[in-house]
Amino acid sequence: MNRKFLCLVIAVMSALLFTGCSDSKKIDKASIAETVTVRQTGGQTIYTFYLLSSSEDVKSVSVFANSLESACYLAKENYIPNLSLSKFELFLADEDLSFDILKTDLQFISSEYYLSPLIMVTLADGNSIKYISESKEAPKEVEEHLMLLKNKNNETDINSLSVFNSIYSKKQNEFSMACINYEDELSVSARKISVKK
């Protein structure tokens, strides 16, 4: 009995020693980004990460980068070391953004295991992106509008999975994507996007 107990204790202690909790993410320390927007200003692309917080104000971090992948890297390196995209739900791209950048970003989203295929992707005008930066409720409103659009028009692609597949589809050269506009209030429409094969 004593020998068995000793073996058990040694086993548990070894496990504790060898593993530790060094790879834990820790809910209280993580900076969780729920929404990301990308816009182009003065020839530069700006990615803004909107973080989950309980405060009244919108918490965000903006970085200059050429792609979402490098933006994540730069944000982690310089501003938010505990950045977590595991709750990333909404991606707004400026309607004037180069299609190649959007394609690259979608490629990145599709290749990362921790990113959900159901991340909502939509184009947005400048006012909408400004609205997102000012109101904490804005992302939820945008998501609701996207769902309504999808219910009305089933062919519109609203998540990264369907947008990605439409871009790389061998069967069609254009697809329909959502576009958010803001003038006094949010509205959403479907926009046809042509894809060069």
Partner: peptide, 26 residues
């Protein structure tokens, strides 16, 4: 998953991540 699935290994994992019930994602 279609072409999206080709970007990743272990596609069933991605399939499980794309499952959705109401507000419950993944």
């Amino acid at each position: 998953l279609g072409d999206y699935g080709r970007q990743q290994s272990f596609q069933f994992f991605t399939l499980s991540k794309s499952a959705k019930f109401g507000t419950m994602n993944g």
